[in-house]
């Protein structure tokens, strides 16, 4: 299934120098991941350009989270490569902010909101050093942006699911990365948090960052994304929402399980 990627079209649309955009693109070539006997991803080839809000969608077990983790080298890649600026992305983790699924961490851990947000500055601070004043200002600004300043000294165990997710978002912002990856950030959160998150995603994309969001839900929220990557172990389709959300593609990904599609407003 060799679909044209929209790298060129959208660049022409907003009239930005094409070579410069392509240089900052993430090039995924023939990426494959195998866990023991299970093939989690097969032969994914994609080009991701900056400045786009990209949703990764597909049925359960389609390899959506695995795609993010394989790009960052968090799971062993059995095939292919992921390059950024012509070098393996996994060797440039300082340019990445990754937010794992909220359920992957223990929220009863003895830490405050501030402790977690400051984790975003650990890499920048360097070994054996304490945080600088500018690191603290960055963290304060990030907390302010997600509306969690008032909860700064609150133990993380006392937060609601949405508040926890906003703390993770603030941690990602403090990393001041070029590539932002979110794994299922919309599970168990409130409307307000979802609104804040899409606002922040849009701001990041407008600032020419890469923003990738794994999202299992095909609800109305999908209209927020510029581009979509539709997976089911293999790449079913990628491109603008309109290009991806066709009856044939959805049928190929979900089988007969999604009979409708009404939320599309592209």
């Amino acid at each position: 299934m060799d679909l044209p990627i929209n790298a060129f079209t959208s660049a022409y649309e907003i009239n930005i120098d094409v070579p410069a955009r392509l240089e900052r693109a993430i090039a995924i070539q023939h990426l494959g991941v195998q866990y023991r006997s299970v093939q989690a991803l097969r032969d994914i080839t994609l080009t991701l350009e900056p400045g786009r809000l990209v949703g990764v969608i597909g049925p359960n077990g389609a390899g959506k989270s695995t795609l993010l983790q394989a790009m960052l080298g968090l799971v062993p890649v059995t095939h292919g490569s992921v390059n950024y600026h012509g070098k393996p992305l996994a060797s440039q983790l300082d340019k990445i902010a990754y937010v794992p699924q909220r359920s992957q961490v223990d929220w009863t851990y003895p830490a405050t909101v501030w402790d977690v947000v400051m984790m975003g500055r650990i890499r920048q601070a360097g070994w054996f050093r304490s945080f600088s004043a500018s690191s603290r200002r960055t963290a304060e600004a990030a907390l302010e942006r997600v509306g969690m300043s008032a909860y700064r000294d609150r133990p993380i165990g006392q937060l609601s699911g949405g508040q926890q997710q906003r703390v993770f978002l603030a941690r990602a912002l403090t990393q001041q990365a070029e590539i932002y990856c979110f794994d299922e950030p919309f599970i168990g959160i409130d409307q307000r948090t979802e609104a804040v998150m899409f606002e922040v995603f849009r701001e990041l994309a407008d600032a020419e960052k890469h923003v990738m969001v794994v999202n299992h839900d095909l609800g109305d929220a999908i209209a927020h994304f510029d581009d979509l990557i539709l997976l089911n172990t293999e790449l079913i389709a990628s491109g603008t929402r309109r290009q991806v959300l066709t009856r044939d593609h959805l049928y190929a990904a979900y089988g007969g399980k999604v009979a409708f599609f009404s939320g599309e407003a592209a």
């Binding site: 983790q69 960052l72 968090l74 983790l93 300082d94 990445i96 902010a97 990754y98 937010v99 794992p100 992957q104 961490v105 223990d106 851990y109 830490a111 402790d115 977690v116 400051m118 984790m119 975003g120 650990i122 890499r123 601070a125 070994w127 304490s130 945080f131 941690r171 990393q175 990856c181």
Partner: peptide
């Protein structure tokens, strides 16, 4: 600070 990050969120620490 590194051990705090690692013990709270090993995957996040690795990704950073």
């Amino acid at each position: 600070k590194e051990l705090l990050f690692y013990t709270f969120d090993p995957v996040g620490a690795q990704a950073a």
